[in-house]
Design a protein around this nucleic acid. Structure first.
Lengths: 197, 197
DNA sequence: GTAGCACTAGAACGAACGTTCTATCAAGTA
DNA sequence: TACTTGATAGAACGTTCGTTCTAGTGCTAC
């Protein structure tokens, strides 16, 4: 048998493809608007495979997709933060990076948890917890950068919170208005705020 | 309030109840997770009434619900902004007001457009437009307050953008973590940022 | 009266949903 | 060979969805 890798199943594992497809779709349109059959189709998998890897069904897959998306967002944030020793400049770079990613993806690839999280406030502990963990990790990442620049722990933790709030909100504004402006403005204002401490 | 200027009889409690119920449900869990039958039930109306008043179906009702919720949020914002002549203090009061409203409603009554808007980025012009209009109105409201305090129009418009971004993002963090902290921190930081101009 | 209209009421429909089910394939083990 | 196990495949199930449809109510005007 002349055996090149099957065109149907690329090198990546089926499970990973399912998680990635779910993460992308949920990031774009939230949980409820995303059907399991569509996830399977986009992943090049079948329903049988989905339920084989995720016997807990859609909810279990959603939690995993949220974690996967959160990790990618963490990487993006880390890239921005590593761009400069000056935390103000580093945060501004995060805003620029986020704005570019958003525009290049037609305003779809933003925060991977926001849309889904808002659907489930007080309605699904598992999903709310996964969202909370992601936001908490990003906040600590930011606080670490600020603290490393000599800002006191207390101030750094609070600043990190506002930086995250502003980036999240500016991303919402960018996506709704299909414009990079809110994130660019946010970057400048956040840098100014950080430098004031 | 938006008294319907329609030539029809204003004795239309049912229509208003339907819009209000839809607004509440969509604010809490977004569009897709909100069923029309549930809306009718919560409004004390029937499906017949819903489709009588909204022949365009769920989408048409959603746009109206978004507008209704946006108006209520405008009122809340205006209340906060009117609380002080100092724009920094007024914005901080908005954050406090928002935090209290969130807590008192078990973290459900926040921005009425965020959840739904995120579901429809690039997928429904009508809903995206309604969301964009709401965010634009809030931004202008904030810019007006800042401009009235002597801040130049250009700076005021940009500041208003970041204030809105930060409040929106902080609200997301509050809801996910079931805590008032992000909004309280945001209020203090926004006041500091405004005073720096 | 009764004709007309705005509104209420909910049964019924087709489509889509998440899920379950059985069957099959491929590879490893004995 | 036969048996096991992880993974694939998709038909089928019951439910719920948004929507449509027909019937009925209450009110106003003639």
């Amino acid at each position: 048998m002349d055996a090149p890798p099957a065109p149907r199943a690329p090198a990546d594992g089926t499970r990973t493809r399912i998680v990635r497809a779910a993460a992308v779709l949920m990031q774009r349109q939230g949980y409820e608007a995303t059907g399991i059959k569509r996830i399977a189709q986009d992943a090049g998998a079948t329903l049988g495979s989905v339920y084989h890897f995720f016997p807990g069904g859609k909810k279990e897959l959603a939690v995993e997709a949220l974690r996967h998306g959160a990790q990618e967002f963490t990487d993006l944030l880390r890239t921005g933060l590593d761009s400069s020793d000056d935390p103000a400049e580093a945060v501004a770079e995060c805003a620029r990076l986020l704005a570019r990613t958003l525009r290049d993806s037609d305003w779809t690839d933003g925060c991977p948890v926001a849309a889904t999280a808002l659907e489930f406030i007080g309605r699904s502990p598992a999903i709310q917890l996964a969202s909370e963990e992601a936001l908490g990790r990003w906040r600590e990442l930011l606080a670490g950068k600020l603290g490393a620049a000599g800002i006191s722990d207390e101030v750094a933790r609070e600043l990190a919170c506002s930086v995250l709030s502003t980036l999240e909100g500016a991303e919402l504004l960018c996506r709704v208005s299909a414009s990079e402006e809110p994130l660019h403005i946010a970057g400048r204002h956040l840098a100014r705020l950080i430098r004031s401490f």
